[in-house]
């Protein structure tokens, strides 16, 4: 069979003597090499990203936070029946230990958390910030609440609440981390003002 087809130029590639040649040509063609290089590069890159993300697990952060309610600016019932309060806060925190070499930024926010007879959990973000680098991770800030502190209903008079500092670590690549410090024992005034 080989001899039969060897006579025909067109078919020479199709059968055994020519087949190895064409395969040989294929293996060293530009496309084949580019494909192999690309596959290899992407595999290595994916592996490095996964490893960078895994190294975050070795970091055991010890952040600290301290919050003081400096002043209740005003406290009233809206016409629609919901309580709203405006307050001034002193926030100090040291989040430097959260930063590793795979950290792009840390998103930090302070939330008021409380329970009412209607809602088993209310979380209201009062202030947030983006920390771009370790140098900015130790801060002190004096601010009034950035987002409105409005209850669903009229339950805020004399309400005991927690202030919780949450942080979300955004990596350069890989898994995102989050944790918090709960600071209990804050109480709102008994009367509107």
């Amino acid at each position: 069979m080989t001899t039969l087809i060897l006579g025909d130029n067109y078919n020479a590639k199709m059968v055994s003597p020519g087949f190895s040649f064409s395969l040989c040509l294929n293996m060293h063609s530009f496309g084949y090499r580019a494909n192999a290089l690309l596959t290899f590069a992407v595999t290595i890159l994916a592996l490095m990203c996964a490893m960078a993300s895994l190294t975050d697990n070795f970091n055991a952060p010890t952040p600290t936070a301290h919050v003081q309610v400096f002043n209740i600016n005003w406290f009233q019932k809206q016409p629609n029946g919901n309580d709203e309060v405006s307050m001034t806060l002193n926030i100090s925190a040291d989040l430097q230990s959260l930063f590793t070499w795979n950290t792009k930024q840390v998103f930090v926010f302070l939330a008021a958390e409380y329970e009412t007879y209607k809602n088993s959990l209310n979380q209201i973000s009062l202030w947030d910030g983006i920390i771009p680098s370790k140098e900015h991770a130790k801060f002190w800030i004096h601010t009034s609440n950035k987002y409105r502190f409005i209850d669903q209903g009229s339950n805020l008079r004399g309400k005991e609440y927690n202030l919780t500092m949450h942080w979300h670590v955004m990596p350069k690549t890989g898994k995102m981390f989050a944790d918090k410090i709960v600071m209990p024992g804050y109480r709102l005034p008994e009367e509107y003002r």
């Binding site: 998103f107 009412t116 007879y117 209607k118 088993s120 209310n122 979380q123 973000s125 987002y147 669903q152």
Partner: peptide
């Protein structure tokens, strides 16, 4: 986007 406020019902969740 990021969640900034949550109110979870006592009875229905």
């Amino acid at each position: 986007h990021r969640v900034i406020k949550v109110h979870e019902r006592q009875d229905t969740g």
